[in-house]
Protein backbone atom coordinates (compact mmCIF):
# COMPACT_ATOMS: atom_id res chain seq x y z
CA UNK A 1 0.00 0.00 0.00
CA UNK A 2 1.30 3.40 -0.88
CA UNK A 3 0.86 6.62 1.00
CA UNK A 4 -1.21 7.90 -1.88
CA UNK A 5 -4.29 6.24 -0.53
CA UNK A 6 -5.64 7.71 2.65
CA UNK A 7 -8.43 5.20 2.95
CA UNK A 8 -8.43 1.67 1.69
CA UNK A 9 -10.52 -1.44 2.16
CA UNK A 10 -9.64 -5.03 1.40
CA UNK A 11 -12.31 -7.59 0.62
CA UNK A 12 -14.75 -5.64 2.78
CA UNK A 13 -17.89 -7.73 3.28
CA UNK A 14 -21.07 -7.27 5.29
CA UNK A 15 -23.76 -9.90 5.53
CA UNK A 16 -27.12 -9.44 7.23
CA UNK A 17 -28.60 -12.84 8.02
CA UNK A 18 -27.56 -14.36 4.71
CA UNK A 19 -28.13 -11.21 2.66
CA UNK A 20 -24.86 -9.84 1.37
CA UNK A 21 -25.10 -6.05 1.49
CA UNK A 22 -21.46 -5.37 0.71
CA UNK A 23 -19.42 -8.01 -1.06
CA UNK A 24 -15.62 -8.03 -1.22
CA UNK A 25 -15.25 -4.35 -1.86
CA UNK A 26 -11.74 -3.07 -2.46
CA UNK A 27 -12.09 0.66 -2.23
CA UNK A 28 -9.13 2.99 -2.56
CA UNK A 29 -9.51 6.66 -1.83
CA UNK A 30 -6.63 8.81 -3.00
CA UNK A 31 -5.47 11.57 -0.69
CA UNK A 32 -6.75 15.02 -1.57
CA UNK A 33 -9.44 13.96 -3.99
CA UNK A 34 -13.19 14.16 -4.03
CA UNK A 35 -14.26 10.58 -4.49
CA UNK A 36 -17.86 9.62 -5.20
CA UNK A 37 -19.61 6.41 -4.36
CA UNK A 38 -22.62 6.01 -6.60
CA UNK A 39 -25.01 3.26 -7.51
CA UNK A 40 -28.70 2.38 -7.57
CA UNK A 41 -30.76 2.07 -4.39
CA UNK A 42 -29.73 -0.86 -2.25
CA UNK A 43 -26.27 -1.05 -3.77
CA UNK A 44 -24.67 -0.90 -0.33
CA UNK A 45 -23.35 2.65 -0.36
CA UNK A 46 -24.61 3.66 3.06
CA UNK A 47 -23.63 0.27 4.49
CA UNK A 48 -20.14 0.96 3.16
CA UNK A 49 -20.12 4.25 5.06
CA UNK A 50 -21.27 2.54 8.21
CA UNK A 51 -18.50 -0.02 7.83
CA UNK A 52 -15.79 2.55 7.15
CA UNK A 53 -16.68 4.46 10.32
CA UNK A 54 -17.34 1.26 12.26
CA UNK A 55 -20.93 2.14 13.02
CA UNK A 56 -21.39 -1.43 11.77
CA UNK A 57 -18.79 -4.16 12.26
CA UNK A 58 -17.79 -5.82 8.97
CA UNK A 59 -18.41 -9.55 8.58
CA UNK A 60 -15.08 -9.95 6.80
CA UNK A 61 -12.39 -7.78 5.37
CA UNK A 62 -10.13 -5.03 6.62
CA UNK A 63 -10.08 -1.25 6.60
CA UNK A 64 -6.96 0.88 6.50
CA UNK A 65 -6.78 4.58 7.26
CA UNK A 66 -3.46 6.30 6.60
CA UNK A 67 -1.84 2.85 6.22
CA UNK A 68 -3.03 1.85 9.68
CA UNK A 69 -5.63 -0.83 10.19
CA UNK A 70 -8.73 0.54 11.90
CA UNK A 71 -10.98 -2.51 11.62
CA UNK A 72 -12.65 -3.05 14.99
CA UNK A 73 -11.95 0.41 16.43
CA UNK A 74 -14.75 2.29 18.17
CA UNK A 75 -16.66 4.76 15.96
CA UNK A 76 -15.82 7.61 18.32
CA UNK A 77 -12.12 6.70 18.18
CA UNK A 78 -12.22 6.76 14.38
CA UNK A 79 -13.77 10.21 14.46
CA UNK A 80 -10.94 11.35 16.71
CA UNK A 81 -8.40 10.07 14.19
CA UNK A 82 -9.80 12.51 11.65
CA UNK A 83 -12.18 10.35 9.65
CA UNK A 84 -15.50 12.07 10.16
CA UNK A 85 -18.83 11.20 8.62
CA UNK A 86 -22.14 12.89 8.00
CA UNK A 87 -25.47 11.16 7.81
CA UNK A 88 -28.12 10.74 5.15
CA UNK A 89 -30.77 12.34 7.28
CA UNK A 90 -29.54 15.67 8.46
CA UNK A 91 -27.46 15.22 11.56
CA UNK A 92 -27.75 18.31 13.68
CA UNK A 93 -28.57 18.63 17.37
CA UNK A 94 -32.10 19.88 16.73
CA UNK A 95 -32.89 21.74 19.95
CA UNK A 96 -29.57 23.45 20.41
CA UNK A 97 -28.66 26.71 18.72
CA UNK A 98 -26.52 26.86 15.58
CA UNK A 99 -23.65 28.22 17.66
CA UNK A 100 -23.97 25.44 20.22
CA UNK A 101 -24.02 22.84 17.46
CA UNK A 102 -20.69 23.98 16.08
CA UNK A 103 -19.23 24.56 19.51
CA UNK A 104 -19.95 20.96 20.47
CA UNK A 105 -17.58 19.87 17.74
CA UNK A 106 -14.94 22.43 18.75
CA UNK A 107 -15.30 21.28 22.32
CA UNK A 108 -13.90 17.90 21.25
CA UNK A 109 -10.45 19.45 20.94
CA UNK A 110 -10.42 20.01 24.68
CA UNK A 111 -10.15 16.24 24.93
CA UNK A 112 -12.84 14.52 26.95
CA UNK A 113 -15.46 16.89 28.29
CA UNK A 114 -15.99 15.03 31.51
CA UNK A 115 -15.69 18.12 33.69
CA UNK A 116 -19.22 18.32 35.06
CA UNK A 117 -18.11 20.60 37.90
CA UNK A 118 -16.99 23.48 35.69
CA UNK A 119 -19.15 26.23 34.28
CA UNK A 120 -19.98 26.07 30.61
CA UNK A 121 -18.83 29.68 30.41
CA UNK A 122 -15.31 28.41 29.71
CA UNK A 123 -16.69 27.23 26.38
CA UNK A 124 -17.24 30.85 25.37
CA UNK A 125 -13.56 30.85 24.43
CA UNK A 126 -14.56 28.74 21.44
CA UNK A 127 -17.20 31.18 20.23
CA UNK A 128 -14.93 33.15 17.89
CA UNK A 129 -13.78 30.07 16.01
CA UNK A 130 -17.37 28.80 15.94
CA UNK A 131 -18.54 32.09 14.41
CA UNK A 132 -15.85 31.87 11.73
CA UNK A 133 -17.04 28.41 10.77
CA UNK A 134 -20.66 29.50 10.80
CA UNK A 135 -19.78 32.43 8.58
CA UNK A 136 -17.89 30.15 6.19
CA UNK A 137 -21.09 28.26 5.44
CA UNK A 138 -23.15 31.45 5.25
CA UNK A 139 -25.15 30.98 8.42
CA UNK A 140 -24.01 34.06 10.35
CA UNK A 141 -27.48 35.55 10.62
CA UNK A 142 -28.78 32.27 12.07
CA UNK A 143 -26.19 31.99 14.81
CA UNK A 144 -28.76 32.06 17.62
CA UNK A 145 -31.42 30.10 15.76
CA UNK A 146 -32.43 26.73 17.14
CA UNK A 147 -31.23 24.18 14.59
CA UNK A 148 -34.61 22.52 14.17
CA UNK A 149 -36.05 25.78 12.83
CA UNK A 150 -33.54 26.04 9.98
CA UNK A 151 -34.69 25.21 6.48
CA UNK A 152 -33.39 21.90 5.19
CA UNK A 153 -30.57 23.23 3.04
CA UNK A 154 -29.28 25.35 5.91
CA UNK A 155 -29.30 22.32 8.19
CA UNK A 156 -26.98 20.53 5.80
CA UNK A 157 -24.75 23.58 5.76
CA UNK A 158 -24.72 23.58 9.55
CA UNK A 159 -23.85 19.92 9.51
CA UNK A 160 -20.88 20.62 7.27
CA UNK A 161 -19.76 23.49 9.51
CA UNK A 162 -19.94 21.14 12.50
CA UNK A 163 -17.94 18.49 10.68
CA UNK A 164 -15.39 21.09 9.58
CA UNK A 165 -14.97 22.20 13.17
CA UNK A 166 -13.22 18.90 13.80
CA UNK A 167 -10.80 19.76 11.00
CA UNK A 168 -11.04 16.23 9.64
CA UNK A 169 -8.54 14.78 7.18
CA UNK A 170 -11.23 12.77 5.51
CA UNK A 171 -14.89 13.75 5.31
CA UNK A 172 -17.48 11.14 4.49
CA UNK A 173 -20.64 12.81 3.22
CA UNK A 174 -23.75 10.70 2.83
CA UNK A 175 -25.94 12.27 0.15
CA UNK A 176 -25.16 15.88 1.00
CA UNK A 177 -27.62 17.28 -1.55
CA UNK A 178 -30.48 14.81 -1.11
CA UNK A 179 -33.88 16.48 -0.95
CA UNK A 180 -32.56 19.95 -1.66
CA UNK A 181 -33.88 22.69 -3.83
CA UNK A 182 -31.90 23.53 -6.93
CA UNK A 183 -30.53 26.67 -5.33
CA UNK A 184 -29.36 24.83 -2.22
CA UNK A 185 -27.66 22.16 -4.32
CA UNK A 186 -25.53 24.84 -5.93
CA UNK A 187 -24.64 26.36 -2.58
CA UNK A 188 -23.69 23.03 -1.03
CA UNK A 189 -21.60 21.84 -3.96
CA UNK A 190 -19.70 25.11 -3.98
CA UNK A 191 -19.14 24.63 -0.28
CA UNK A 192 -17.90 21.07 -0.72
CA UNK A 193 -15.52 22.16 -3.42
CA UNK A 194 -14.14 24.85 -1.15
CA UNK A 195 -13.66 22.66 1.91
CA UNK A 196 -12.14 19.85 -0.14
CA UNK A 197 -9.15 21.99 -1.04
CA UNK A 198 -6.98 20.64 1.73
CA UNK A 199 -8.68 17.40 2.61
CA UNK A 200 -10.12 14.25 1.16
CA UNK A 201 -13.84 13.84 0.61
CA UNK A 202 -15.67 10.60 0.03
CA UNK A 203 -19.31 11.15 -0.82
CA UNK A 204 -22.37 9.13 -1.62
CA UNK A 205 -24.43 11.10 -4.09
CA UNK A 206 -27.41 10.49 -6.33
CA UNK A 207 -27.35 13.77 -8.13
CA UNK A 208 -25.14 12.88 -11.10
CA UNK A 209 -24.61 16.45 -12.21
CA UNK A 210 -23.12 17.20 -8.80
CA UNK A 211 -20.93 14.12 -9.13
CA UNK A 212 -19.85 15.11 -12.65
CA UNK A 213 -19.11 18.60 -11.48
CA UNK A 214 -17.24 17.86 -8.27
CA UNK A 215 -15.70 14.46 -8.21
CA UNK A 216 -12.28 13.39 -9.40
CA UNK A 217 -12.90 9.72 -9.06
CA UNK A 218 -16.03 7.61 -9.05
CA UNK A 219 -16.72 4.13 -7.77
CA UNK A 220 -19.97 2.53 -8.89
CA UNK A 221 -21.52 -0.01 -6.60
CA UNK A 222 -24.29 -2.42 -7.55
CA UNK A 223 -25.65 -5.22 -5.41
CA UNK A 224 -22.84 -4.75 -2.95
CA UNK A 225 -20.04 -5.08 -5.46
CA UNK A 226 -17.86 -2.65 -7.32
CA UNK A 227 -19.13 -2.42 -10.86
CA UNK A 228 -16.86 0.20 -12.30
CA UNK A 229 -14.30 2.81 -11.34
CA UNK A 230 -12.75 5.83 -12.96
CA UNK A 231 -13.53 9.43 -13.77
CA UNK A 232 -17.00 10.54 -14.79
CA UNK A 233 -16.44 10.19 -18.52
CA UNK A 234 -15.14 6.63 -18.21
CA UNK A 235 -17.83 5.52 -15.82
CA UNK A 236 -20.73 7.05 -17.71
CA UNK A 237 -19.72 5.27 -20.91
CA UNK A 238 -19.50 1.90 -19.20
CA UNK A 239 -22.40 -0.24 -20.54
CA UNK A 240 -22.72 -2.17 -17.29
CA UNK A 241 -23.21 1.04 -15.37
CA UNK A 242 -25.85 2.28 -17.77
CA UNK A 243 -27.62 -1.05 -17.46
CA UNK A 244 -27.51 -1.01 -13.65
CA UNK A 245 -29.08 2.44 -13.62
CA UNK A 246 -31.55 2.14 -16.46
CA UNK A 247 -32.33 -1.57 -16.52
CA UNK A 248 -31.75 -4.05 -19.32
CA UNK A 249 -32.26 -2.90 -22.87
CA UNK A 250 -30.45 0.42 -22.55
CA UNK A 251 -26.95 -0.97 -22.72
Amino acid sequence: MTDDYVLETRELTKEFKGFVAVNKVNLKVRRGTIHALIGPNGAGKTTCFNLLTQFLPPTRGRIFYKAKEITGSKPSAIARMGLVRSFQISAVFPHLSVLENVRLALQRKRGGSFDFWRSERILNALDDRARELIASVGLSEFEQTIAVELPYGRKRALEIATTLALDPEVMLLDEPTAGMTHEDVGRISALIRRVAQNRTVLMVEHNLSVVADLCDHITVLARGEILAEGDYATVSRNPEVVQAYMGKGYA
Binding site: K74, V84, A91
Partner: peptide, 9 residues
Protein backbone atom coordinates in the same frame (compact mmCIF):
# COMPACT_ATOMS: atom_id res chain seq x y z
CA UNK B 1 -25.09 8.88 16.51
CA UNK B 2 -24.02 12.40 15.63
CA UNK B 3 -22.33 12.84 19.00
CA UNK B 4 -20.46 9.60 18.30
CA UNK B 5 -19.46 10.80 14.86
CA UNK B 6 -18.00 13.93 16.45
CA UNK B 7 -15.72 11.64 18.45
CA UNK B 8 -17.56 11.48 21.76
CA UNK B 9 -17.51 8.07 23.40
Amino acid sequence: PRATSLGYD
